[in-house]
Design a protein around this nucleic acid. Sequence first.
DNA 1: GCCGTTTTCGGCCCGACTGTTTTCAGTCG
Length: 567
Amino acid sequence: MLTKKDITKMLETIAVYMEIKGENPFKVSAYRKASQSLETDERTLQEIEDVTSLKGIGKGVGDVINEYIETGNQSYLDELKKEIPEGLIPLLKIPGLGSKKIAKLYKELNVKNKEDLIEACEQNKVSELPGFAKKTEQKLLEEAKVLGQRPERYPINTMIKAHEEINQFLDGIEDIIQYHIAGSFRRMRETSKDLDYIISTNDEMKVQEALLKFPNIQEKIAVGKTKVSLDLLFGDDVIGVDFRMIKEESFYHTLQHFTGSKDHNIKIRQIAKDRNEKVSEYGIEESNGNIITYKSEEEIYKHFNVPFIQPTMREDGTEFDKDLSDIVQLDDINGDIHMHTTYSDGAFSIEEMIEAAIKRNYQFICITDHSRNLAVANGLSIERLLEQNEKIKTLNNQYKEIDIYSGTEMDIKPDGTLDYPDEVLKELDYVIAAIHQSFNQSEAEIMHRLKVACENQYVRHIAHPTGRIIGRREGYQVNMDELIKMAKETNTVLELNANPQRLDLNAEVLKQHPDLMITINTDAHHIDHFDFMKYGVGTAQKGWVKKSQVINAKDRVSFKKWIQSNK
DNA sequence: GCCGTTTTCGGCCCGACTGTTTTCAGTCG
């Protein structure tokens, strides 16, 4: 049976082929809009009776979809595939090469794939075409050779490190009035293609000059008065970085514009259009030609009489139709309930973690070191666990400004048993269960392990529910719908692990389950890791998680009541 | 191809940079 994903993929593919074929760009974008409209509808494909009832899907695309659903075949796509060689599609990924140039290369030189393109460049045939010249040919040859070698998107954790380095460099440029990150990284997407910075200055040329002194420039892609685009080298990663220079008065408009998303901005422009106004990165143009500029993003949204939408939630445009007023905020978080100390594999003592938490004005924390099965992380024997438990109880009496709970992050072992017996668990304030090994087990085996944990009366929460590492490993075979059902039935809370390598649960799952109870924890192994909370909250916001769904958004008293209650 | 109280045609978001050009097309975000 076909899923929605199959349909949207088919529509996207048609759009790409049509583009190279040279179809009317609006027709192409109609297929893309139809795909998106389908994707953002909350119903499954089977629940949608008539696809043409969706906005952006009319008779034309409707027929295309229905043929595919009914026969499993799409004749229009088949036709396109006969006309356009498949090998041309990946060429769209080459910077500077779009559909029109690809079409020209195909028609004039019979270029059908990457290999043909390399050959044509080497034989200097490309530079003979009108619209192409030596420089383009050289560039295309270089890019075609490395096509597919560089990742298209980088995980957020990689970007965080690059971002920190770039910040340091920008801090040293005198002519910058202020700067801010924009783009998908600011929206806290799990992966980003590049990094975008907005810079306000009175002297663009001086800033441009300073930017070109970046120590790790791999290539200068574009160098203009309003934009400097560089490929910068961070370790082994070549990351594209765009810098936009703008006068201070337009700063927040440019920031809003380049934060995107594209679809979010299209929506804003439509709203503006209905008011006979025009939005650009410079400001808002009224019908009389007067340009308004505001001194904050909040004021821009206010201008259009829409609620302010935080960057994390600016995605497909549906955020404008949703009441986002009770979405969880960083300030709502009153404690962190998953962290490690030197007892297991953490870098700081219990006291140091407590002090760091107090500095952040947290009202409560749980100390949750690894259990004995995780020997590589110096997991605690029962004796050490109980000794730590006593110590935490003593410390809790010493620190009046914060509640310190004693817990564990206990392994759910591969055979489906828990790492500590119940008579030990009942001594603790809080028990987290987690899968740390045998990731390649079958779905049935993994789900059995999770079931045992959920059904245990002392296990309050499941850590990093899928075990994924963004961009590095998929995680284990979890049936998420089943896990969520089990969690709800057993009053077990699922974790949103805020470590930017994990962000597990992800936003998509959260959006689909608006009544799920979660905790947002950093899993800190270092006092600096408490900072990860912002990525966890950002992910929760992307998943439209309400404050009331988040256990550690409770205040000190309510949290105490919750943790001391039976499951 | 879709859409529509200025509906059945004419729009569809907007601007900058590059390279190849003698005024602009293509690409990109």
